[in-house]
Simulated scan of single mutants.
Amino acid sequence: MDASSVAARKQPVSWIVQLLEWTTADFTIRLSTGGFIPWGEKVFLARDLTYGALGELPTFEDGIDSQTTRANITIIPPDPTALAAVADRAHQRTLIQVWDATLDGDTGYLVGEPDLLFRGIVDFPRLVISETWEVVLECGTEESLLNEPNEDRRLSNPFHQSVWPGETGLAYVTGLGRKVYWRANTPAGTGGGGYSSGGGGGNSANQY
């Protein structure tokens, strides 16, 4: 944490607030738990007139063992139009960040640099309909993608072009019919060939 921010928190009058920035292809929302807060060229508001206000932020904690950090962030839209915009599934895997910040109690301005609490991506939205309309953004860290299985990834021309459209480097390559395992051990007894991330039962003479 920034040294001046730490020093300010030891003073009798200081406020600790959180800042949220959510960036999508359609909009960028900057919200705070402490009202109007300028930070450089950015301005964080208690309520965005179009998309609403922060409802709840979780306690951000590190993941345990093979788990990565997860966070549920609640946004309260002002109307059905905003609800549909915020909950649009097109925003999946968009960047969302939360900072912890210190405000001077007399001026209301930031002291030092905010401390990054969470940097992640939106996994999926969940609607809560009661007295208010709420959108709970279930978020994970970018590192969580490393834990996803890659059964759909193959050393083949169709998959290669799905990543790099028009790049025909594998179009006329032979010997790609073998099963290739990405970030997984080759199952025992499957015979030779293919890349292996370790431990598999392939014939090393046929390895690339």
Rank of each mutant, 00 (worst) to 15 (best):
D62T: 08
E21F: 03
V163C: 11
V128C: 08
E131Y: 14
L49C: 07
D79L: 09
L19Y: 03
R126D: 07
R119D: 12
Y181A: 00
S144M: 08
A101V: 06
I16G: 08
I121N: 06
I37L: 02
N72W: 03
P114V: 06
A90N: 15
R183H: 14
A184S: 09
G191H: 11
T23E: 06
A87T: 11
G191D: 11
T141Q: 09
L145I: 08
P165R: 08
L155R: 04
N157Q: 08
L137Y: 02
N206E: 14
E138R: 13
S204T: 13
V111T: 08
G200M: 05
A82V: 05
L137G: 00
Q207H: 14
D62G: 12
P12S: 08
F124I: 10
L170T: 04
G169Y: 06
G120L: 07
D26F: 07
A184V: 09
T168I: 11
L95A: 06
S14T: 06
R178T: 07
V13K: 12
G200A: 07
Q97K: 13
E131K: 13
L19Q: 01
D152N: 11
I121W: 08
I16T: 15
P80E: 06
H160P: 00
A90Q: 14
T33P: 00
P78D: 01
S66R: 13
Y51V: 01
S144Y: 06
R183G: 01
T74M: 13
P149C: 05
K42W: 12
D62P: 07
E41F: 13
R119F: 01
W182V: 05
G169K: 07
D65S: 11
R93A: 13
N72M: 04
W164L: 15
G108A: 03
Y172F: 13
E142T: 11
T23Y: 01
P58V: 04
D106F: 15
S14E: 05
T141G: 04
Y208T: 10
F118R: 05
R93Y: 15
P80N: 02
L146R: 09
W22S: 00
A3C: 05
R9Q: 11
G194R: 01
R153P: 00
V43T: 15
M1P: 03
W164Y: 15
L127M: 14
A8I: 10
F60S: 00
L95T: 13
P125R: 01
E41Y: 10
T68P: 00
V17P: 03
E138C: 06
E167P: 02
